[in-house]
């Protein structure tokens, strides 16, 4: 079974971002970039499926300008077999990404797609569900456990208040939650080997998909800052202040 994983190049999770002075967007100049953490979990899961003999090939895809090749090489170093960059210099919204991925899933005849549940830049949490819709596939979102069983994949989902277990017919789309696995680090020999693994570059046009944006960003601002309050000296003072000053107890 061929598994497709899509990854996104995003700002590193530890970077404190700044809004541009003209409020047009977030300033990403000279900021450290990385694979989106949820996508990293998706890559890890796909590699584990291959190590368990469930997956025959792991194909990793990213949509973006040439800089995303850096993240594709990282995924190859982690254990993906082959990479595809869908090259575009413009921003593609989740709906457009879903259409691109669907075209690749069909072309490559992938049986399972594993994606991060959301990216830590736009926090949309949409692409997997949209891909499933467009490809008429079932979706196992926010997965904390994935088990392949015959023509089905059993997914444990992190839902409000607990866990839900569902079975999906293949082909299917899975989106990862935090506890699915703990991603490995790439070893130096594997980083060297990854340089020789195939990385194909294609365009959205070659896939005949329309990725015209539907949304316009009017402005981006910093949220209202919270002021630091007072330091109290004891539990007694804290309780007193919560009762009389704040009135919340």
């Amino acid at each position: 079974m061929k598994v497709l994983v899509a990854i996104k190049r995003v700002v590193d999770a530890n970077v404190k971002i700044r809004v541009k002075p003209d409020n047009s967007d977030v300033d990403l100049a000279n900021v450290k970039m990385a694979i989106n953490p949820f996508c990293e979990i998706a890559v890890e899961e796909a590699i584990r499926l291959k190590e368990r003999g469930v997956a025959s090939e792991v194909l990793v895809v990213s949509v973006g300008d040439d800089r995303c090749q850096e993240q594709l090489r990282t995924a190859l170093a982690l254990g993906a077999d082959r990479a595809v960059q869908v090259k575009t210099d413009s921003t593609v919204e989740p709906l457009g990404i879903a259409k691109i991925l669907n075209a690749i899933v069909k072309k490559e005849e992938c049986q399972l797609v594993v994606l991060g549940k959301q990216s830590i830049d736009n926090d949309n949490n949409q692409t997997g569900q949209m891909l499933a819709a467009i490809g008429n596939m079932p979706q196992g979102t926010f997965a904390s456990e994935v088990v392949c069983e015959g023509s089905e994949v059993l997914v444990t989902r992190e839902v409000d208040g607990g866990l839900q277990k569902i079975a999906l017919q293949l082909p299917a789309v899975i989106t990862t939650d935090l506890r699915l696995n703990e991603p490995r680090f790439a070893s130096l020999p594997n980083i060297m080997k990854a340089k020789r693994k195939p990385l194909e570059v294609i365009s959205p046009e070659e896939l005949s998909v329309d990725v015209t944006p539907r949304l316009t960003t009017v402005k981006v601002v910093s949220p209202a800052e919270r002021e630091a309050g007072v330091i109290v000296s004891s539990v007694a003072e804290l309780v007193e202040k919560l009762k009389t000053e704040a009135g919340v107890l």
Partner: peptide, 15 residues
């Protein structure tokens, strides 16, 4: 909110 609430975006939809 975007970027884990570290920025607030105003977006307009043409759909």
């Amino acid at each position: 909110p975007i970027y884990a609430g570290n920025a607030l975006a105003t977006v307009r939809s043409s759909d």
